[in-house]
Design a protein around this nucleic acid. Structure first.
Length: 133
RNA sequence: AGCAUAGAAAGGGCAGUCGCUAAAAAAUAAAAAUUUAGAGGAACGUCCGGACUUCACAGAACAAAGCGCCGGGUAACACCCGGUGGAAUAGUAUAAUACUAUUUCUAAGGAAAGCAGCACAGAAAAGAUACCGCCCCAUUAAUAAUGGAGUAAGGGUGAAAUGGCAGGGUAAGAGCCUACCGCGGCAUUAGUAAUUUUGCCGGUUCUCUUAAGAGAAUUGUCCCGCUUUGCGGGAUGACGUGCUAAGCCCCGCUUGAAGCAAGAUCAAAUAGGGAAGUAUUCUAUGCCGUAAGGUAUAGGCAGAGUUGUUCGCUCUGGUGCUUUCGGGUAGAUCGCUAUAAUCUAUAAGUAAUUAUAGAUAGAGAUAAAUGAUUGCCGCCCCUUAAUUGGGGAACAAAAUCCGGCUUAUAUUUUUAUGCGUGUU
RNA sequence: CGAGGUGUGGCUCAGUUUGGUAGAGCGCUACGUUCGGGACGUAGAAGUCGCAAGUUCGAAUCUUGUCACCUCGA
């Protein structure tokens, strides 16, 4: 299995999972408060691994901008996920994370780049791993 | 050259690395790997019209919604093309006003079926009305004041004000009466005025046009006559009828409902449903039975369908137990992308468009793919001695599919119109 | 895919049904009151009624189009 891929099995799809995460999940913020992560985990799971989904509010911007942000978040996760995935696999933990933006909209940041998001996503992944310990 | 407005076309290119979705063939328990394809002119909005799918459809009435000059195009339309009438603007001539236009707008049937409204001002705003004025009467010391009755000839208001003139008549007035005239209305020239000139709109008849409409003549209503389609005569008189229907409304025409989360197939979990058998069960009447009760018919009541409502029509019947059956949610698969498609040529047509021939094209996701990054070239801006260095690239992303409409759009190209400068 | 609502001074709203004067509260400004401030009193300013076109003598109100925002259903 390739280390930098992100197939459809690694994404959250069902409506139930989203409801669970937003109702009962823990919330963490990145160091610059740009990105928010809500997550839920089960220890001693049958199918260990990490599943993620990006979420952008409808009020943040138009469809083009929202699609772009989702793809950037996915890209940032894809390039930095290796450590967390291997940790979860070795400890039999099934983890589900939803990334969403905080106080950022098309008006405040019309040309958000990948570099702006990479650091905060990296920081969030480290924080989640610490919490699991 | 430049600027403005309107229309049309285009909406950066090539290569590398990492990743996503779909398809293909080989292999297969699965995965990986390979090849190919992968957002728009508006995909936006969801404002119209269809295709397609499911449900419904004995019939009648009503409601509701939509449309409303004419002809053509189209699968269809509230779209498009061509025309008619109206309004605005500009120019030219003018007494009003008319004519012209590569311009702009136009939901444009009916106001004499009825209802409603018409601020302010004004006497009165629609079956009229009395502020000033005029006139009569009463009271008071009164040519004045107050009160009452009558009066629309005169006044001024407003976007909009209800035959003319002369005489009679009267307290004063009034088509109240008479003659002449007008006889649907409006504006206007000349004239002191009667009167008259011209134009516009309404009705009727005729002619022309496929039609909207245009042109000519004529002008209340009824009757009679004739040299019969127009002229003459007589009688009659409510002399009354402004604007708004994108207020209600009337008239004419059209419309079954819902939408791909339509719908079809497979189908966990949980709860419940149908059918058969059996026990029990509302009212009335008939029959059987000594009785308990059984059975038949009718009715009531309740529910469902007729997907706007009503009538009408059709169907079902409460509860317990036993047996048996399938529907169906999560989820999965299909629907799911070839087409009223686009371009070119020829022919028909003023045009929209149509016919024939040839060529071209190839997304199909479902918490939802089409991305990130690097280099080179091209474009724009700033800067520099220097392509030296730096920065920028609109609007906006498929969600069943088409035809339109609407709105957003950096930059480039191009067409038309206008402005203004320079040159000859 | 379908249904509905809102837009009016700086803010929160009324007025739209039935067309004709744009209004209320809070806030703002000035003056008075007070040693000073607050509260109170008096006066005043502030609105292309989201935008465009049409109907009408006349439009915040009627009609059509359009922009933005919000809510709901399958």
């Amino acid at each position: 299995m390739k280390s930098f891929s992100l197939s459809s099995n690694e994404r959250i799809k069902s409506k139930k999972d989203f409801e669970d995460i937003f109702k009962h999940g823990n919330i963490l913020f990145s160091f610059n408060k740009k990105v928010k992560a809500s997550f839920i985990y089960i220890k001693e799971a049958d199918d260990p691994g990490v599943k993620i989904a990006p979420a952008v509010s409808k009020r943040a911007g138009n469809a083009v901008w929202r699609n772009r942000i989702k793809r950037l978040i996915r890209e940032a996760y894809r390039l930095n996920k290796t450590g967390l995935v291997s940790y979860c696999k070795s400890n039999h933990i099934s983890l589900k994370i939803v990334f969403s933006l905080n106080y950022i909209s098309k008006k405040t940041a019309p040309n958000l780049g990948l570099i702006d998001l990479t650091d905060s996503v990296k920081d969030l992944l480290n924080k989640v791993e610490k919490k699991l310990c």
